[in-house]
Design a protein around this nucleic acid. Structure first.
Lengths: 234, 234
DNA sequence: CTCGATTCTGACACTCAGTATCAATAATGC
DNA sequence: GCATTATTGATACTGAGTGTCAGAATCGAG
């Protein structure tokens, strides 16, 4: 799945490597000069690939800019479907500096709510991502804040993810894919992530992944409070 | 605010009229031939205006297609801010066929939750819209279902609305504009609308506005259920 | 009603994202 | 190696969105 994995065929490795190169350079240029002020022409010139190659790797200019975001949601869906690479215990990557008494991420006790499971799934997804993801994600989110076109793109991306989450949950729980409640849950999960990530990025990613997942759990914990919020006596 | 209102200056009336014309023709052509298959050129030819005029009325091709959606969210924000046109009781338009015993829409009892207020606000907004809105909105939503570019646009639009809702609520309640709970509430409200509207459109708008607001209340009622949904014993 | 100021429209040219095609090239499996 | 298949790069094209500018319509005041 990652960049240069010896088990993959050479063709695939090359394809993924150019994809990564393009995404990295795109993020750098967009951050330096601004998204709108940078043309695809300039980008492919810097990356030393042709325009054709660019549009084969990414459907749109926007998609190249938010590749880090894309990786996150891909990991989320993977974790939700339970597609762990063989020989991997849930959530072991990049978290070996855990204090001994801590309970492992991603082990939801039976009897818990679906919402709690989604929280764990997101935390696990965050744990699975490569070490350089933090930096790229922070830059990406900063870029999105100042670029309407990118905000539009990630919001669109988000609805796609939520749709897949609903479908996955519907199958797991034996419910209808139109069930109101599933849609609400899927949306609450991404909202909680969004809020947690916003604050984490604002603090420059201080505290690393652990801080991010802590914020995530706080955000999920705030949901019942939100429902009971009343005009009088805030 | 609506099309030809004698109190408005002539210039403004003309501007709004051409805007409406363009939006109507856009919706018709997009529905007939498909969004991507219709060029702005063909559109302005049919509407007998120049390309320049089109892009002065609407920032993008997408915006022209989803004008009905836009009207809805504008009404929502108006109602939320309490900006009623003078001499209007809350939610009187297009709902005079109410049974005598029914409680008026939009009167939330003090002590109720903010979430319930948002539900009422949405219901009031639906009541304020012009009679032909139903038809246009249904066509618009159908179009969105088959057109990724439009889905992207409305999702973007939606985040903008939610941001304004959060800001408005923050001021009303004396809370911070970054408050987790406000964001959650704003998002839940639009989600509930989205689900209610989806089913209503699927039924061709059967039952009119009243059916729509009934579905809306059902969707809001499903929120606490969603939170408590558990994997075992669905 | 008329004139001057302001605003809107239409026409044209331009940039750039995204698509389609095709020959050249590189990887794969035998 | 060699045929097969996928990938790249070059080129030309469509169409959305922007900027500019002259002319027409509206407005406000005398």
């Amino acid at each position: 799945m990652t960049a240069d994995d010896r088990s993959l065929p050479l063709r695939e490795r090359k394809r993924l490597r150019t994809r990564r190169t393009i995404a990295d350079i795109a993020l750098r240029l967009f951050t330096e000069r601004g998204f709108d002020a940078t043309t695809v022409e300039e980008l492919v010139d810097e990356a030393e690939v042709s325009r054709s190659t660019f549009f084969r790797a990414f459907a749109t200019k926007e998609a190249a800019a938010v590749e880090a975001e894309n990786e996150l949601w891909a990991a989320y869906l993977e974790e939700l479907a339970g597609h762990r690479p063989p020989g991997t215990t849930p959530g072991d990557t990049a978290l070996s500096d855990m204090a001994p008494g801590d309970t492992a991420l991603g082990d939801t006790a039976p009897g818990d709510t679906v919402l709690a499971e989604l929280c764990d799934t997101l935390a696990r997804a965050a744990g699975v991502l490569p070490p350089d993801w933090d930096h790229r994600y922070i830059l990406t989110r900063r870029l999105i804040l100042t670029t309407p076109a990118l905000l539009g793109h990630v919001e669109y991306q988000r609805t796609g993810v939520e749709k897949q989450v609903v479908a996955c949950l519907a199958e797991k729980l034996g419910l209808d894919s139109d069930d109101l409640r599933l849609r609400i849950l899927a949306e609450l999960a991404t909202t909680a992530w969004s809020v947690a990530a916003r604050d984490w990025v604002r603090d420059d990613g201080a505290g690393g992944r652990r801080a991010l997942t802590d914020r995530l759990r706080n955000a999920f914990a705030a949901i019942p409070d939100a429902l009971n919020l009343s005009p009088r006596a805030s």
